[in-house]
Design a protein around this nucleic acid. Structure first.
Lengths: 242, 242
DNA sequence: CGACCTGTTGATTTAGATCAACTTACGTGG
DNA sequence: CCACGTAAGTTGATCTAAATCAACAGGTCG
């Protein structure tokens, strides 16, 4: 039996904007089920026209694109609260793939009901657009990091962003968060080679800015890390949850 | 006296999805005016909370972010039909700046009316979300190009995308389009140095793939250029126009 | 046990950055 | 009308951050 939205495990977090109770009721109707997947499971694939939209509830994943030359770009990492499938929802085609890195639990929505949402729930439609704008904002920052920063700045930037997000989800425990990706994933996200990423991680460790091993990231001083990553510290607002 | 939407100079192009007449009427009310600006004029700036939203009607511009270290990332180029200010519209703050490269003419909308649009015009709200998803798609592709491609592939990719778009706007004339940017702008868009960009342009010219000088880009064989740029040639759908 | 995956480290190479000149073209002001 | 300053493009020489190549170590699993 699927969790009812009123008992949603993450909705109440400060990270998210709060919904009015009619909205919660609407989402309970909009939601068609829940899905749990194993680590490594593909969730959506580039070019496909998935009938389903998801909101991640727990676990972590990643979005990526493959190139003709075999290289892979990790577009970003997927954390609880992220909405998956907007492109399929409005344009009928995903232009990137999504896969689960750890086991994941996701809310499932029916894509064909999306238009109903726009017609009957303008505030939810607005929230969806907000999420799209937030994604655009984040990708603009990613382009900037990959295009203009040195290796150490890029890794520091990525760790800062991830650390802040995971903390906001309440998953940190004395300065440490779970980060269950491989170095190759980070390398592909930042446009760096695996070897150079590894050496850059060692440098960050030496400088006591961040230490990532055994799937856990320890950040002794987040502000110092943000500075090292030239991170734009303008406030990231609360985000809507679909 | 501002152009009325019914006489919009670009709306009828095949590039754009067609609107129903009620939608056109609604847009005429939503539109509060028109603006023309000189080359070099700033349109929006990072961190600011502009009260206005725009749709570009003519001319070209660019979006960019500046870093603490003085470097600049050009996020993308702005062409007629592009919508500007979505971030300000939903999140009250731009995270990048926009400036006019040539003189531009723009439709002006009132940000505070955006919520009215969501409440009373769900199909227009849907279109806006579509545009946001399209932007996300394009930025994903940009990250992939900047993160994973060689200099010549990146330039070929950018030229392909630009060429296709400008042709769709009907601005091409025997295999040539206007492209009034500086080499520095392209360099900042692709994460390359100015000097290396210049040398890469020479290589593309030698290989007869693309020749850009005096503000005009000539492309003898767009398919060959796309191949050189590892361009994902899956169909780019018609886009909504706001 | 052996195959495979992930991480680590050192040696070598290279794409692209940086540095430095020089050329046009285009104002602007004397 | 010319001198000078500035912006954009071009080209060659040199440097370097990061890529590539190679080898090995520890874990895990069938």
């Amino acid at each position: 039996m699927a969790t009812q939205c009123r008992n949603c495990p993450i909705r109440k977090l400060d990270l998210f904007t709060q919904m009015r109770s009619e909205e919660v009721e609407f989402m309970e109707r909009f939601k068609v089920g829940e899905m749990t997947v194993d680590a490594g499971a593909p969730l959506m694939s580039e070019g496909a026209n998935t009938p389903q939209l998801f909101t991640a509830l727990s676990g972590m994943g990643l979005r990526y694109k493959l190139l003709a030359n075999g290289r892979r770009q990790v577009i970003n990492f997927v954390f609880p609260g992220d909405f998956l499938g907007l492109q399929a929802g409005v344009m009928n085609e995903m232009t990137h793939s999504v896969e689960a890195t750890t086991p994941m639990r996701l809310c499932v929505f029916d894509r064909s009901e999306l238009w109903t949402l726009f017609k009957s729930r303008p505030e939810r439609a607005f929230d969806l657009t907000w999420l799209a704008a937030l994604e655009e904002r984040f990708l603009g920052e990613t382009v900037t990091s990959v295009g203009q920063k040195s290796a150490i700045e890029r890794v520091a930037w990525a760790f800062s962003r991830i650390y802040r997000r995971i903390c906001a989800l309440g998953l940190d425990r004395d300065g440490e968060i779970p980060l269950p990706y491989r170095q190759q994933d980070l390398a592909d996200a930042l446009g760096l080679s695996l070897v150079h990423t590894n050496k850059t991680l060692a440098r960050l460790r030496d400088r006591q800015l961040a230490s990532w091993s055994d799937g856990r990231l320890r950040v002794p001083d987040i502000e110092a890390l943000e500075e090292a990553g030239l991170v734009d510290t303008s406030l990231v607002p609360r985000r809507p949850l679909m």
